[in-house]
Every structure is written in C-alpha cells, then in structure tokens.
Nucleic acid binder design. Structure first.
Length: 240
DNA sequence: ATTCTCACA
DNA sequence: TGTGAGCA
C-alpha cells in the first residue's frame, strides 16, 4: 500500500476520468514512455504519483484536450520553463454558460468540482488570496457567489500553466490600486463634462462606463507592451 | 486485486 | 494509442 499523498496509477485514472473520460491506464503509461511524466516507483516497480505528478498530468491532458496541442509541443513547453508554460496566445474557450438562476445564487463550496471542474481546496485558496470572497451559510457552510463562477473558471485555466492563487494575489493588490486611480480619473472626467455638480442621470452613467472601458483598454495595452518587452528581453539574453 | 512489461495490431 | 498474455 502506498504512502499518504501518493496514488497508484489506477487511483489517478479514476480521479481524473471525471474531466477526461477517455483517460486510461495504458494512456498514462504511454505518456511516461514519451517522457512527459516520471512518477516514482515502489521497490516492486509499481508507479507512485505525487501531487505534482498528478498536476502535471492534468496540465498535459488539458493542453491536449482543450488546446489541441500535440504531445511533442507539450513536452517542449513543459520542459522548457519549469513552472510557467505561458507564451500561449490562444484565448480561453468560453466554457462558461451560466444562466441567471445560477448567477444570482450562492452555492455550497462542495459542489464546485461538479459545477466548475476545480477542487474545493483551489476555491479556498482563491479566497485566501483575496481573489474571491466566501460567504457563510447559517449552518456554517462555505458558499460561493455565482457571480464569481466565471472568474474561478478563468483562474482554473491559469492553474494549468503553473499560475496559482499565490501568483494571483498580486492582481488583487494591483486591482485595488488601479481602481483607486480610475475612480480619481472619473471624478476629474466628471468635472470636465458637467460642471462642479454631477447629476446621476442615466446618460452620465453610460459615459462613466464608457470612459472606464476605454481606460481599461488603454492601460491594458500599456501593460501588454511592457510585459512583452520584458519577456523578449529575457529571451534574447538566454540565446547568448 | 492490481500493476508490471512486452509484443503486437 | 490500446489490448492481451503471463508474472509478481
């Protein structure tokens, strides 16, 4: 019997067959032959998969299924940047079609695996990182806001690239700083448009929304450019 | 009961 | 990739 934290190949397959129905034991072994996986072994030769191994396998399956990546490419990406497999520019396939019903309600955290395809522990970590806020039910159960579903799914995608809740924390603090900046900018914007007093008309509201959208797009471009510049610099340094 | 390797389609 | 034989 394997030690705590390690799973045999059968357990691993059963655990992941929820998300990847066509996963088989032979396929997992095949992936190992191709050099994408290297679990430890018991003295008798049985494969033992650590949490890391399982997560790596999840990433491979995700890349293959949702991203249609050939195994050869996945291998290169995974080996190249131990941890961050970024530099993939395909946008997320929108797996998120929640109806109003789901969106307006709060849902028990235990149902996140079936609802969003992410582990409960992951949702808790997002909460600890400040990305989302959990609510307590009268019975002491943790509830998740339906409005956060899309955000959680997005964070779940990021997880496959080695970007987890810890890394996301910086986006929370960044969002706080930036929202303060935008609010200030909107005040200035309001004074320029409608005199000292700002009326809360519907028209005003739309202008605010539009101004905010523009600011988000523009600052986003700045951010994109700066990041790409830094990355290309890093890469050119590597080739020397 | 399960997994292992290896040969093979 | 997947299957089946024969083992441990």
């Amino acid at each position: 019997m394997p030690d705590a934290g390690y799973l045999t190949i059968g357990k691993v397959v059963k655990r992941l067959q929820g998300q990847y129905p066509d996963l088989s034991i032979s396929k997992v072994r095949y992936l190992e032959d191709e050099g994408l996986l290297n679990p430890s072994r018991t003295p008798s030769g049985y494969r033992l998969y650590s949490q890391k191994d399982v997560h790596r396998l999840e990433t491979i399956l995700y890349l293959q299924k949702n991203r249609f990546m050939p195994l050869s490419v996945i291998k290169q990406q995974l080996d190249g940047g131990e941890g961050h497999v970024s530099l993939v520019q395909t946008p997320c396939p929108n797996v998120g079609e929640d109806d109003e019903e789901v969106l307006q309600k709060f849902h028990p955290i235990d149902r996140m695996p079936e609802l969003l395809g992410v582990p409960v522990s992951f949702v808790r970590q997002l909460s600890e990182a400040g990305v989302i806020q959990l609510r307590e039910s009268p019975h002491g159960r943790s509830l998740v806001d339906g409005k956060d579903f899309q955000l959680i799914r997005t964070c779940g995608e990021l997880r496959h690239f080695g970007i987890g809740p810890k890394n996301l924390r910086q986006y929370v603090t960044a969002a706080n700083r930036e929202s303060a900046m935008f609010e200030q900018a909107l005040v200035v914007f309001a004074k320029k448009g409608g005199g000292v007093e700002m009326e809360r008309t519907e028209e005003n509201r739309q202008q605010f929304g539009q101004a905010l959208s523009e600011m988000l797009a523009l600052t986003g471009q700045v951010r994109d450019t700066l990041i790409r510049r830094q990355i290309s610099k890093t890469f050119s340094e590597m080739e020397e």
